[in-house]
């Protein structure tokens, strides 16, 4: 805490954002200040904003949130009958929030108000970004944010910032996911050619076994506290915007001998990777990922096409050109 205040000038600007990001990257964040740190890392707060500007931002954004939320709150049952997309979306969200992280005390028990908040924020987001809507996995991404900020409007805007970067993961055409999986295959080819050759021979180059890792930023692979630690490291964009891809390579590299010696085929590999959940040493993997990222240097960066999430999209046309899910 005492260290945290040294990053600000007298009016509350972060004077050296790179130093802050480096500090988070290597040292992590105490839970008490996470709420504020995450707002900066996600880009909801500008580093050069003052205390007063941030306070103003919060109040403006709070009323803006209420306005968007009111768009769906004001839909009457009669109107809802004629609004299939709204009913479908709400139905999906209703079903997912009651099964998101319910074993945590923050979300457990009947009529837990935080579960209602998850619901309201996600439904509001699906109106804020109507083209993208709601997709499974989003509740996983929102859950820690709400847990950390503890505030509805703040969580919403942090989630919006996160989705600016990860939205393409949920695109109907799945292009955001495919670009990232392709980049992983290129990185493995660069950093571990025996493993690459093995995957090639065994028809595993689609890297679908990394899908869950990438889609929700390893949320299902680590316990809650570790996931938060990993996320803030990834969000610093300190060594690379795409450190998560190096994390994938690092995990695969650690399992390479087992994968090859047991001659895993696509089905076996998929199951094996799924079952690594809860058994990955985060600190070791982060050290490896950092080393791989440094070692790969520009060759590594060249494996990752421009616009690959979480980089912001290159063109500013219609970001989510898609029909709504009907299922």
């Amino acid at each position: 805490m005492r260290e945290w205040v040294t990053f600000f000038d007298s009016e509350g600007r972060v004077t050296d954002s790179e130093a802050l990001r480096k500090r988070v990257f290597y040292g992590g964040v105490e839970h008490l200040i996470r709420k504020e740190v995450w707002a900066f890392l996600l880009g909801y707060y500008a580093y050069d904003s003052t205390y007063a500007e941030r306070e103003y931002l919060r109040s403006v954004k709070k009323s803006e949130y209420e306005t968007i939320k009111n768009q769906w709150e004001s839909i009457s049952p009669q109107q809802a009958k004629k609004f299939t997309k709204f009913r479908e979306r709400k139905g999906l969200i209703d079903k997912d929030v009651v099964r998101t992280d319910r074993s945590l005390s923050f979300y457990d028990g009947d009529d837990n108000p935080n579960v209602c908040l998850l619901h309201d924020i996600l439904l509001t987001y699906s109106f804020y970004n109507f083209d993208l809507g709601y997709c499974q996995g989003m509740s996983d991404l929102l859950s820690p944010i709400l847990y950390v900020t503890g505030d509805e409007s703040e969580s919403f805007w942090c989630f919006v910032s996160l989705m600016e970067r990860l939205g393409p993961n949920f695109n109907r055409d799945q292009n955001g996911m495919h670009t990232q999986l392709f980049a992983i295959s290129k990185l493995v080819e660069l950093l571990d050619s025996p493993l690459h050759n093995y995957f090639k021979q065994h028809d595993c180059l689609n890297y679908f076994f990394c899908f869950r890792w990438v889609l929700i930023q390893f949320k299902r692979e680590f316990e809650y506290e570790k996931t938060m630690r990993l996320w803030e490291v990834l969000w610093t964009h300190y060594l690379s915007e795409h450190l998560h891809l190096y994390v994938c390579v690092a995990i695969l590299k650690r399992q390479r001998n087992k994968i090859i010696s047991e001659r895993m085929d696509f089905d076996t590999l998929l199951r094996f990777i799924n079952e690594l959940s809860g058994h990955i040493d985060l600190d070791a993997v982060l050290r490896d990922a950092e080393a791989l990222c440094i070692c790969a240097g520009e060759n590594g960066a060249a494996c990752i096409p421009p616009g690959t999430p979480p980089s912001l999209p290159i063109d500013n046309g219609s970001l989510y050109p898609q029909e709504d899910d009907v299922l």
């Binding site: 099964r99 998101t100 499974q136 996995g137 899908f211 869950r212 199951r271 799924n274």
Partner: peptide
């Protein structure tokens, strides 16, 4: 069958 997390990809 209580509160199973939504499946991402596939479970086995």
């Amino acid at each position: 069958t209580n509160d199973l997390a939504p499946t991402i990809g596939v479970d086995f």
